[in-house]
Design a protein around this nucleic acid. Structure first.
Lengths: 196, 196
DNA sequence: TAACCAGTGGGACAAATGTCCTTTTTAAAA
DNA sequence: TTTTAAAAAGGACATTTGTCCCACTGGTTA
């Protein structure tokens, strides 16, 4: 009933297996690194690579015409991005930006197709990863709509107390889908309640 | 910039190919039918089948403790449901209920695995279908948050004018993520604006 | 026909959230 | 240390949305 709330998503199995392929010398897989706050992908652009996070945290978000950001996911170890465009050959829908410094694997679209076709285990891991992304998103938005901000924060803090030390307030607000002002208000009220 | 707004989702390629497999006598694939307003899957239960819609419309939704429904997708021809649990072997997160009478294909989990392993084209279609579900959901929720109800309705009506004749108001409201009252209010204001 | 129910539409008020702007705090740079 | 910029916190007010009602309609059933 609450596992989905895990805020920074991971996929240990996928990163472990990719690591193994890499160590075996698969020339489809390359290493890259980015500093903090680096914009790796930009919404509505075309890319020909799939990334997989080995270390660090990134945010995946959509921004509208007014510059408002809405965060889709916080990506941790083992999470991939840029993979959706392998199948549809369309433009990216999300921007991805590193929060902490990042170490990633990168695989070209062709290399990714190659792996999917020739490696059944890899194929299954990707299917599972996609399915998990869907499963994860479903309850999140419905919950955020159905409950007031306070409840949302409470749950987040319970599962991830170090939250505010790693992720800036603005990003948390954009994740919940409210303004910073509203987030602060809710936090203050929570403090007063627990203090009294 | 607006294709995603298509409210009732379809996947012609997938249904065509499945139809073909069925006609060729694949014993993994079976036919089933349901009347309108029939609850086919219920949240938090376990199922061992994947369904694919040949004809009709269904809604896929999550409901919370208070009975509030939040609609994830309206499923049309070619959309599958119950497929996420093939990979994770967990309980269903969504309930699925037919809106109109439904004709579907059903495939057991084992049969589905079979097809994924032995039929590369089927495998690719499923990968694509999963990727599309993710792509579709991302902008939808961010949009609904960022813009007032009115704007959301306007877009829906523009893309799908016959909307209110096929889908009950309550479902539309649950899809947008607001109460029926708010939906009505917005509709009224729109009417007044266009009238003046 | 009468009774009933689900779906629809809306009034009045309460609560939640956003907007705008200012102050405080923190952390980095000079 | 001082200076500066960015992040965080919050006051005051406007707007949006929700809650709780009640009224109206059409179709079904006793």
């Amino acid at each position: 009933m609450s596992h989905w709330l895990k805020m920074i998503r991971t996929n240990p199995e996928l990163v472990a297996y990719t690591e193994k392929l890499f160590q075996q010398g698969s020339h489809n897989i390359h290493e890259e690194a980015f500093g903090a706050k680096h914009k790796i992908m930009e919404q509505d652009h075309r890319y020909r690579k799939v990334y997989l996070i080995r270390e660090g945290i990134a945010k995946c978000y959509i921004s509208d015409e007014n510059g408002k950001e809405f965060i889709q996911e916080f990506l941790g170890e083992g999470m991939e991005f840029g993979e959706l465009e392998v199948f549809s050959n369309k433009l990216t829908i999300c921007s991805v930006e590193s929060i902490t410094p990042l170490k990633v694997f990168s695989v070209s679209h062709d290399g990714f197709h190659q792996l999917l076709k020739t490696d059944p285990h890899f194929n299954m891991l990707i299917l599972k990863a996609l399915a998990d992304k869907i499963r994860y998103k479903a309850p999140r938005h419905s919950y955020q709509h159905a409950y007031p901000i306070e409840d949302n924060i409470l749950r987040l803090k319970k599962l991830f107390p170090e939250l505010t030390e790693v992720i800036p307030k603005k990003d948390i607000a954009n994740y919940i889908g409210v303004t910073t002002r509203s987030l602060n208000r809710a936090l203050k009220e929570l403090k007063e309640k627990s203090g009294a």
